[in-house]
Design a protein around this nucleic acid. Structure first.
Lengths: 227, 227
DNA sequence: CGTAGACTTGACTTAACTCAAAGATCGTGG
DNA sequence: CCACGATCTTTGAGTTAAGTCAAGTCTACG
């Protein structure tokens, strides 16, 4: 892991994000980018651990991040993925309930929450930003509960591909995660994920170039399958 | 559905809650109780609908409430239950993603969000309360995702019984919901829920008096089963 | 190249679902 | 207060979607 301080005058700052920041006018994003510490992580490296004190807040600059949770016997669950531009790590109370890991090479900005607390008094919009983010996360969690509880394997995989494609903004997608991560996100096994993908390909709904690169050929059909 | 205004001077106000309000010192609870409209609902009556504008905020005074969501083909998912004292209905953005229904006879206090917005400027603790609530809901949603994605039917039912008992604060529980609601909350069918309950009873972990009344006989054992 | 890890495919198993019917329980009106 | 029907719950028998286990195949990288 490598780190370097970034100041407001850093001339390259605005060019390091892979895609336009969705909330770039947001005071929270501003605060993290200006006051934060820049850190890079290797593939699968831990950004923070389950049970650790949650006194930092993060923003993905490059690459993607997963939040993971384990049960005592090793069963694994992925809470979500965070892509370039997104803020994460503010989920809950005093300590993290998930750990966060880099999906591939990833760079994030890190800011102490205590630093935010000072700003909060001057800028009440900052608190509102944090709340809005939490509400968005909650909305996503609610959608995901429906998926986990009531969708079939085929519907889960279809929904997932659409989610990824919508985020990327196009129908040709480079998956930043492997089959195991997809499976643990969708509550399935790698084998089932793999089978559903080939099934979708055989139905001419998608085309898999390499295992990590695929194209949606029939979005309408995928949407129908995802319910 | 019946409604009546409650003013701060309503002498009976503090005696209508079934259990001590967990957040009674909270400014948000204060605001809802003082400024809110009191409404009563019959069993299964809708409190708000899926897709409706979300401009109200609610607090359960008596009884329990479920939030429900349907897929196009009728598959049903329960997002959560809210019991006496709890605040709900603030989940998301402009419109409700779930509908809320009374589990049995239920009374709730209802307050316009616009009324809160005015107070917010005078009392910044109010915004913080809303955020804290959202964070708590998110935490619950994350636990529930793990349950839905990775737990077995037996673990799901055990976890559920413990959740209910912890809320009630004792090991003798009156379930406010039927088997269908439990099933739709846990991502199972009624038959499976019923089978797991009899299985837990046969293992002497619980005792089912009537289908809605049960006692935890071996909490330790239940905890082990819930992972 | 050759090896390690990731992905796919096939054969078989199983946990949970479906369908069906029998018991409980509840509410209602005679 | 009891009888009746409606609804909810339990139980049984059979089915199935997804899981497990075990080869293979592909890919990337040293």
């Amino acid at each position: 892991m490598s780190a370097s301080y970034v100041t407001q005058s850093d001339p390259g700052r605005n060019f390091r994000t892979d895609r336009p920041a969705p909330l770039s006018c947001d005071p929270l994003v501003e605060a993290i980018d200006v006051m934060g510490l820049r850190m890079s992580f290797a593939k699968d490296e831990e950004i923070y651990g389950q049970g650790e004190e949650a006194d930092l807040i993060y923003r993905v600059v490059r690459g993607s991040v997963r939040t993971v949770r384990f049960m005592a016997d090793g069963r694994r669950q992925i809470g979500g993925f965070h892509h370039a531009g997104e803020i994460f790590g503010f989920e809950c109370g005093p300590e993290h309930r998930f750990c966060a890991e880099a999906l591939g090479e990833a760079t994030v900005m890190v800011l102490k929450r205590s630093a935010l607390r000072g700003l909060t008094e001057r800028d009440p919009g900052l608190e509102r930003s944090l709340w809005t983010l939490t509400v968005e996360q909650l909305g996503h969690a609610q959608d995901h509960m429906l998926l986990l509880a009531r969708k079939t394997a085929c519907e889960k995989v279809s929904s997932f591909l659409l989610e990824i494609a919508d985020l990327a903004g196009r129908d040709e997608v480079d998956l930043p995660m492997g089959r195991q991560d997809m499976a643990d996100y969708l509550g399935l096994t790698i084998e089932t994920v793999s089978r559903m993908l080939t099934q979708l390909q055989n139905s001419n709904l998608i085309e898999i170039a390499h295992s990590r690169t695929l194209k949606i050929r029939n979005r309408r059909g995928l949407v129908d399958l995802s319910e």
